[in-house]
Amino acid sequence: MNPLRSLHTISRASGDGPVDWTAVGAAAKDATTPGSVELSEAEIEGYRGDVRAARRSIREVAAVSFDLPETVEIQNRHHWIDANVSTFRRVMAPVEAHTDVVFPDVSRVLNTGSTTLMLSFLGRNVLGQYDPLLLAEGDAKHALYFVHPNIRRVAAELDVDEERFRRWIAFHEVAHAAEFGAAPWLSNYLESGMERGVEALANGSFDREAFRELDAAMTAVEGYAELIMDRAFDDEYADLREKVDQRRRGRGPLARLMRRLLGLGLKRRQYERGKAFFETVADARGIEGASVVWESPETLPTSEELDDPAEWLARVD
Protein backbone atom coordinates (compact mmCIF):
# COMPACT_ATOMS: atom_id res chain seq x y z
CA MET A 1 0.00 0.00 0.00
CA ASN A 2 1.31 3.44 -0.92
CA PRO A 3 -1.13 6.27 -0.01
CA LEU A 4 1.27 9.02 -1.10
CA ARG A 5 1.62 7.49 -4.56
CA SER A 6 -2.17 7.15 -4.69
CA LEU A 7 -2.60 10.88 -3.97
CA HIS A 8 0.08 11.71 -6.54
CA THR A 9 -1.69 9.63 -9.19
CA ILE A 10 -5.00 11.35 -8.44
CA SER A 11 -3.42 14.81 -8.62
CA ARG A 12 -2.09 14.02 -12.09
CA ALA A 13 -5.45 12.80 -13.45
CA SER A 14 -5.65 13.57 -17.15
CA GLY A 15 -7.67 12.87 -20.29
CA ASP A 16 -10.75 14.35 -21.87
CA GLY A 17 -13.45 12.96 -19.58
CA PRO A 18 -14.56 13.98 -16.08
CA VAL A 19 -12.87 10.87 -14.59
CA ASP A 20 -9.44 9.45 -15.37
CA TRP A 21 -10.30 5.76 -15.10
CA THR A 22 -6.74 4.54 -15.55
CA ALA A 23 -5.74 6.71 -12.60
CA VAL A 24 -8.69 5.43 -10.57
CA GLY A 25 -7.55 1.83 -10.91
CA ALA A 26 -3.93 2.59 -10.10
CA ALA A 27 -4.71 4.93 -7.19
CA ALA A 28 -7.30 2.59 -5.65
CA LYS A 29 -4.78 -0.25 -5.66
CA ASP A 30 -2.10 1.99 -4.17
CA ALA A 31 -4.52 2.86 -1.35
CA THR A 32 -5.36 -0.79 -0.66
CA THR A 33 -3.24 -3.74 0.44
CA PRO A 34 -3.92 -6.60 -1.98
CA GLY A 35 -3.97 -9.40 0.57
CA SER A 36 -2.87 -12.93 -0.17
CA VAL A 37 -4.50 -15.54 -2.35
CA GLU A 38 -1.89 -18.19 -1.71
CA LEU A 39 -4.30 -20.99 -0.90
CA SER A 40 -3.62 -24.58 -0.03
CA GLU A 41 -5.13 -27.30 -2.19
CA ALA A 42 -7.59 -27.97 0.63
CA GLU A 43 -8.72 -24.32 0.61
CA ILE A 44 -9.13 -24.29 -3.17
CA GLU A 45 -11.14 -27.47 -3.02
CA GLY A 46 -13.14 -25.94 -0.16
CA TYR A 47 -14.27 -23.07 -2.41
CA ARG A 48 -15.10 -25.50 -5.19
CA GLY A 49 -17.07 -27.71 -2.82
CA ASP A 50 -18.96 -24.75 -1.38
CA VAL A 51 -20.02 -23.53 -4.81
CA ARG A 52 -21.05 -27.01 -5.97
CA ALA A 53 -23.01 -27.64 -2.77
CA ALA A 54 -24.73 -24.28 -3.07
CA ARG A 55 -25.71 -24.96 -6.68
CA ARG A 56 -27.07 -28.40 -5.81
CA SER A 57 -29.00 -27.26 -2.74
CA ILE A 58 -30.43 -24.11 -4.33
CA ARG A 59 -31.57 -26.04 -7.41
CA GLU A 60 -33.43 -28.43 -5.12
CA VAL A 61 -34.91 -25.83 -2.78
CA ALA A 62 -35.86 -23.18 -5.34
CA ALA A 63 -36.86 -25.62 -8.09
CA VAL A 64 -35.25 -23.38 -10.72
CA SER A 65 -32.85 -24.34 -13.48
CA PHE A 66 -29.58 -22.41 -13.72
CA ASP A 67 -25.89 -22.89 -14.39
CA LEU A 68 -22.95 -21.29 -12.65
CA PRO A 69 -21.00 -18.58 -14.49
CA GLU A 70 -18.08 -19.79 -16.57
CA THR A 71 -15.85 -17.44 -14.57
CA VAL A 72 -15.53 -18.24 -10.86
CA GLU A 73 -12.52 -16.48 -9.33
CA ILE A 74 -10.84 -16.36 -5.93
CA GLN A 75 -9.50 -12.82 -5.90
CA ASN A 76 -7.37 -10.51 -3.81
CA ARG A 77 -8.45 -6.90 -3.32
CA HIS A 78 -6.52 -5.62 -6.34
CA HIS A 79 -8.12 -8.25 -8.59
CA TRP A 80 -11.55 -7.08 -7.42
CA ILE A 81 -10.69 -3.42 -8.06
CA ASP A 82 -9.49 -4.24 -11.59
CA ALA A 83 -12.71 -6.13 -12.32
CA ASN A 84 -14.92 -3.32 -11.04
CA VAL A 85 -13.20 -0.27 -12.50
CA SER A 86 -14.73 -1.28 -15.85
CA THR A 87 -18.15 -1.68 -14.19
CA PHE A 88 -18.03 1.83 -12.73
CA ARG A 89 -16.85 3.18 -16.06
CA ARG A 90 -19.71 1.55 -17.99
CA VAL A 91 -22.36 2.84 -15.57
CA MET A 92 -20.96 6.38 -15.59
CA ALA A 93 -20.45 6.62 -19.36
CA PRO A 94 -23.84 8.27 -20.14
CA VAL A 95 -23.26 10.89 -17.44
CA GLU A 96 -19.72 11.57 -18.63
CA ALA A 97 -20.96 12.09 -22.18
CA HIS A 98 -23.26 14.91 -21.03
CA THR A 99 -21.06 16.56 -18.41
CA ASP A 100 -19.86 20.13 -18.95
CA VAL A 101 -17.91 21.88 -16.20
CA VAL A 102 -16.25 25.29 -15.86
CA PHE A 103 -12.91 23.96 -14.56
CA PRO A 104 -12.54 20.53 -16.18
CA ASP A 105 -9.02 19.81 -14.90
CA VAL A 106 -9.93 20.53 -11.29
CA SER A 107 -13.20 18.64 -11.63
CA ARG A 108 -11.40 15.62 -13.13
CA VAL A 109 -9.03 15.45 -10.15
CA LEU A 110 -11.91 15.68 -7.66
CA ASN A 111 -14.00 13.08 -9.50
CA THR A 112 -11.04 10.74 -9.85
CA GLY A 113 -10.30 11.11 -6.14
CA SER A 114 -13.87 10.46 -4.98
CA THR A 115 -14.22 7.42 -7.27
CA THR A 116 -10.88 6.08 -6.01
CA LEU A 117 -12.10 6.46 -2.42
CA MET A 118 -15.26 4.49 -3.16
CA LEU A 119 -13.48 1.67 -4.99
CA SER A 120 -10.76 1.30 -2.37
CA PHE A 121 -13.36 1.22 0.43
CA LEU A 122 -15.38 -1.45 -1.37
CA GLY A 123 -12.23 -3.37 -2.25
CA ARG A 124 -11.43 -3.67 1.45
CA ASN A 125 -14.93 -4.79 2.40
CA VAL A 126 -16.59 -6.82 -0.38
CA LEU A 127 -16.65 -10.52 0.51
CA GLY A 128 -18.21 -12.03 -2.60
CA GLN A 129 -19.85 -10.75 -5.75
CA TYR A 130 -22.05 -12.14 -8.46
CA ASP A 131 -21.34 -9.86 -11.43
CA PRO A 132 -23.98 -9.89 -14.20
CA LEU A 133 -21.71 -7.49 -16.18
CA LEU A 134 -24.49 -5.01 -16.82
CA LEU A 135 -24.01 -2.65 -19.78
CA ALA A 136 -21.06 -4.71 -21.02
CA GLU A 137 -20.52 -4.83 -24.77
CA GLY A 138 -20.46 -7.99 -26.83
CA ASP A 139 -21.06 -11.47 -25.51
CA ALA A 140 -19.84 -10.79 -21.96
CA LYS A 141 -20.16 -13.68 -19.53
CA HIS A 142 -21.42 -13.35 -15.99
CA ALA A 143 -18.85 -13.92 -13.24
CA LEU A 144 -18.63 -14.96 -9.60
CA TYR A 145 -15.92 -13.53 -7.34
CA PHE A 146 -14.74 -14.33 -3.82
CA VAL A 147 -12.38 -11.80 -2.21
CA HIS A 148 -10.42 -14.22 -0.07
CA PRO A 149 -8.41 -11.75 2.08
CA ASN A 150 -11.64 -10.01 3.12
CA ILE A 151 -13.40 -13.28 3.92
CA ARG A 152 -10.44 -14.37 6.05
CA ARG A 153 -10.18 -11.00 7.85
CA VAL A 154 -13.89 -10.66 8.60
CA ALA A 155 -14.20 -14.27 9.81
CA ALA A 156 -11.38 -13.54 12.28
CA GLU A 157 -12.95 -10.24 13.36
CA LEU A 158 -16.29 -11.95 13.96
CA ASP A 159 -14.60 -14.88 15.70
CA VAL A 160 -16.39 -17.44 13.51
CA ASP A 161 -15.09 -20.49 11.70
CA GLU A 162 -13.61 -19.33 8.39
CA GLU A 163 -14.74 -22.36 6.40
CA ARG A 164 -18.32 -22.05 7.63
CA PHE A 165 -18.37 -18.30 6.98
CA ARG A 166 -16.95 -18.80 3.48
CA ARG A 167 -19.63 -21.39 2.72
CA TRP A 168 -22.35 -18.99 3.86
CA ILE A 169 -21.02 -16.30 1.50
CA ALA A 170 -20.90 -18.84 -1.34
CA PHE A 171 -24.56 -19.73 -0.86
CA HIS A 172 -25.56 -16.07 -1.04
CA GLU A 173 -23.66 -15.38 -4.27
CA VAL A 174 -24.81 -18.60 -5.94
CA ALA A 175 -28.38 -17.62 -5.02
CA HIS A 176 -27.87 -14.51 -7.18
CA ALA A 177 -26.58 -16.71 -9.99
CA ALA A 178 -29.80 -18.73 -9.68
CA GLU A 179 -31.92 -15.61 -10.14
CA PHE A 180 -30.16 -14.43 -13.28
CA GLY A 181 -30.02 -17.99 -14.62
CA ALA A 182 -33.75 -18.50 -14.05
CA ALA A 183 -34.58 -15.11 -15.61
CA PRO A 184 -32.52 -14.58 -18.80
CA TRP A 185 -34.40 -11.31 -19.34
CA LEU A 186 -33.30 -9.81 -16.00
CA SER A 187 -29.97 -8.35 -17.14
CA ASN A 188 -31.58 -6.48 -20.05
CA TYR A 189 -34.38 -5.26 -17.78
CA LEU A 190 -31.93 -3.81 -15.26
CA GLU A 191 -29.74 -2.34 -18.00
CA SER A 192 -32.72 -0.58 -19.55
CA GLY A 193 -33.75 0.92 -16.23
CA MET A 194 -30.20 2.03 -15.47
CA GLU A 195 -29.84 3.64 -18.88
CA ARG A 196 -33.14 5.52 -18.49
CA GLY A 197 -32.29 6.77 -15.04
CA VAL A 198 -28.68 7.75 -15.77
CA GLU A 199 -29.61 9.37 -19.08
CA ALA A 200 -32.20 11.51 -17.29
CA LEU A 201 -29.62 12.56 -14.70
CA ALA A 202 -27.14 13.38 -17.44
CA ASN A 203 -29.77 15.68 -18.99
CA GLY A 204 -30.44 17.43 -15.70
CA SER A 205 -33.68 15.68 -14.74
CA PHE A 206 -34.74 12.82 -12.50
CA ASP A 207 -36.75 9.89 -13.86
CA ARG A 208 -38.52 8.94 -10.65
CA GLU A 209 -40.40 6.05 -12.23
CA ALA A 210 -37.22 4.49 -13.64
CA PHE A 211 -35.57 4.54 -10.24
CA ARG A 212 -38.69 3.20 -8.52
CA GLU A 213 -38.76 0.27 -10.95
CA LEU A 214 -35.02 -0.33 -10.49
CA ASP A 215 -35.36 -0.21 -6.72
CA ALA A 216 -38.28 -2.66 -6.80
CA ALA A 217 -36.37 -5.04 -9.09
CA MET A 218 -33.22 -4.92 -6.95
CA THR A 219 -35.31 -5.38 -3.81
CA ALA A 220 -36.72 -8.55 -5.38
CA VAL A 221 -33.20 -9.68 -6.36
CA GLU A 222 -31.80 -9.16 -2.87
CA GLY A 223 -34.86 -10.46 -1.03
CA TYR A 224 -35.17 -13.65 -3.04
CA ALA A 225 -31.47 -14.38 -2.61
CA GLU A 226 -31.82 -13.93 1.16
CA LEU A 227 -34.80 -16.28 1.27
CA ILE A 228 -33.17 -18.96 -0.87
CA MET A 229 -29.82 -18.72 0.90
CA ASP A 230 -31.46 -19.12 4.30
CA ARG A 231 -33.55 -22.09 3.25
CA ALA A 232 -30.84 -23.82 1.22
CA PHE A 233 -27.86 -23.30 3.55
CA ASP A 234 -26.91 -26.61 5.12
CA ASP A 235 -25.99 -25.32 8.58
CA GLU A 236 -27.18 -22.94 11.28
CA TYR A 237 -26.59 -19.30 10.34
CA ALA A 238 -28.40 -17.09 12.87
CA ASP A 239 -25.17 -16.36 14.73
CA LEU A 240 -23.41 -15.39 11.49
CA ARG A 241 -26.12 -12.92 10.52
CA GLU A 242 -26.25 -11.42 14.01
CA LYS A 243 -22.49 -10.94 14.16
CA VAL A 244 -22.39 -9.38 10.69
CA ASP A 245 -25.18 -6.97 11.69
CA GLN A 246 -23.42 -6.11 14.96
CA ARG A 247 -20.21 -5.41 13.08
CA ARG A 248 -22.04 -3.11 10.68
CA ARG A 249 -23.70 -1.18 13.52
CA GLY A 250 -20.47 -0.89 15.47
CA ARG A 251 -18.38 0.70 12.72
CA GLY A 252 -16.83 4.13 13.15
CA PRO A 253 -18.20 7.41 11.74
CA LEU A 254 -16.04 7.32 8.59
CA ALA A 255 -17.19 3.82 7.67
CA ARG A 256 -20.82 4.78 8.36
CA LEU A 257 -20.42 7.84 6.14
CA MET A 258 -18.95 5.75 3.33
CA ARG A 259 -21.78 3.24 3.59
CA ARG A 260 -24.28 6.08 3.33
CA LEU A 261 -22.53 7.65 0.33
CA LEU A 262 -22.34 4.28 -1.43
CA GLY A 263 -25.99 3.49 -0.77
CA LEU A 264 -25.17 0.40 1.30
CA GLY A 265 -27.86 1.36 3.81
CA LEU A 266 -30.33 1.24 0.94
CA LYS A 267 -29.05 -2.20 0.00
CA ARG A 268 -29.65 -3.42 3.56
CA ARG A 269 -33.18 -2.04 3.36
CA GLN A 270 -33.64 -3.92 0.07
CA TYR A 271 -32.51 -7.15 1.76
CA GLU A 272 -34.96 -6.72 4.61
CA ARG A 273 -37.92 -5.46 2.59
CA GLY A 274 -37.46 -8.07 -0.13
CA LYS A 275 -37.03 -10.94 2.28
CA ALA A 276 -40.17 -9.96 4.19
CA PHE A 277 -42.09 -10.01 0.87
CA PHE A 278 -40.77 -13.41 -0.17
CA GLU A 279 -41.21 -14.95 3.28
CA THR A 280 -44.90 -14.07 3.08
CA VAL A 281 -45.23 -15.36 -0.47
CA ALA A 282 -43.33 -18.58 0.31
CA ASP A 283 -45.48 -19.21 3.39
CA ALA A 284 -48.57 -18.86 1.21
CA ARG A 285 -47.42 -20.61 -2.01
CA GLY A 286 -44.12 -22.32 -1.22
CA ILE A 287 -40.75 -21.64 -2.81
CA GLU A 288 -42.03 -22.56 -6.27
CA GLY A 289 -44.74 -19.93 -5.86
CA ALA A 290 -42.14 -17.35 -4.90
CA SER A 291 -40.02 -18.31 -7.92
CA VAL A 292 -42.84 -17.24 -10.24
CA VAL A 293 -41.35 -13.75 -9.89
CA TRP A 294 -38.68 -14.70 -12.45
CA GLU A 295 -41.07 -15.77 -15.23
CA SER A 296 -41.09 -12.36 -16.93
CA PRO A 297 -40.72 -8.62 -16.23
CA GLU A 298 -44.49 -8.51 -15.76
CA THR A 299 -44.29 -10.88 -12.77
CA LEU A 300 -41.85 -8.69 -10.86
CA PRO A 301 -43.55 -7.07 -7.85
CA THR A 302 -44.15 -3.34 -8.02
CA SER A 303 -42.98 -1.09 -5.22
CA GLU A 304 -46.50 -1.10 -3.79
CA GLU A 305 -46.77 -4.89 -4.01
CA LEU A 306 -43.52 -5.35 -2.11
CA ASP A 307 -45.30 -3.88 0.90
CA ASP A 308 -48.50 -5.79 0.15
CA PRO A 309 -47.62 -9.33 -0.98
CA ALA A 310 -51.31 -10.31 -1.09
CA GLU A 311 -51.77 -7.81 -3.92
CA TRP A 312 -48.97 -9.45 -5.92
CA LEU A 313 -50.34 -12.94 -5.22
CA ALA A 314 -53.76 -11.90 -6.46
CA ARG A 315 -52.29 -10.39 -9.63
CA VAL A 316 -50.14 -13.35 -10.66
CA ASP A 317 -52.59 -16.07 -9.55
Rank of each mutant, 00 (worst) to 15 (best):
D245N: 09
R256Y: 01
R164E: 14
F171E: 02
A97V: 04
I74H: 11
W294D: 03
S114L: 13
I169N: 07
A26P: 00
D67I: 01
A143C: 07
L240Y: 02
F103K: 06
A217F: 07
R152C: 07
D245M: 09
V221G: 00
A54E: 02
A183E: 07
D307A: 10
E195G: 01
P184M: 07
V160F: 05
D159A: 14
P132L: 08
P94F: 06
L117N: 05
E73L: 15
A155R: 03
E73Y: 09
L201D: 04
G15I: 14
G204Q: 02
S291Q: 02
S40H: 04
Y271M: 06
A63Q: 11
Y224S: 04
T9D: 10
D16F: 08
R77E: 03
R241C: 00
R241W: 02
N188T: 12
P184E: 08
V106S: 13
D245P: 00
R260F: 14
V91C: 00
F278T: 02
M218A: 06
R89C: 06
V95C: 00
G274W: 02
I169P: 03
M229A: 08
E70M: 12
A178H: 08
W80N: 06
A62V: 01
D159S: 14
L7W: 07
P3Q: 02
G138E: 03
H176E: 05
E213Y: 11
Y47H: 11
R315N: 08
V24A: 12
R59K: 14
E70S: 15
Y130F: 15
I81H: 03
I287A: 00
P69N: 12
M229Y: 01
A23R: 09
V72L: 14
A26M: 07
I151S: 05
D159Y: 00
D239N: 06
V244G: 02
P69I: 12
K29S: 10
G286N: 00
E226R: 05
A210M: 09
A282T: 00
L214F: 13
A182C: 06
P34F: 05
R77F: 08
V244Y: 03
V154C: 01
A210H: 13
G263K: 09
M1Y: 03
A136Q: 07
A42P: 00
W168T: 03
E295P: 01
D30Q: 15
A143T: 12
A183R: 04
T71Y: 06
L306K: 04
A217G: 11
E173P: 09
L201A: 09
R5S: 15
R285Q: 11
R247M: 15
A97W: 02
A314T: 13
W294G: 03
G252M: 05
N2A: 14
V281S: 01
V147S: 06
V126Y: 05
A31D: 11
F278S: 00
G15N: 13
S36K: 06
E272Q: 14
E288I: 01
V24N: 11
P184T: 09
D207V: 08
D131L: 10
E60C: 01
I58R: 03
R315A: 08
S192A: 13
D82Q: 10
A177H: 05
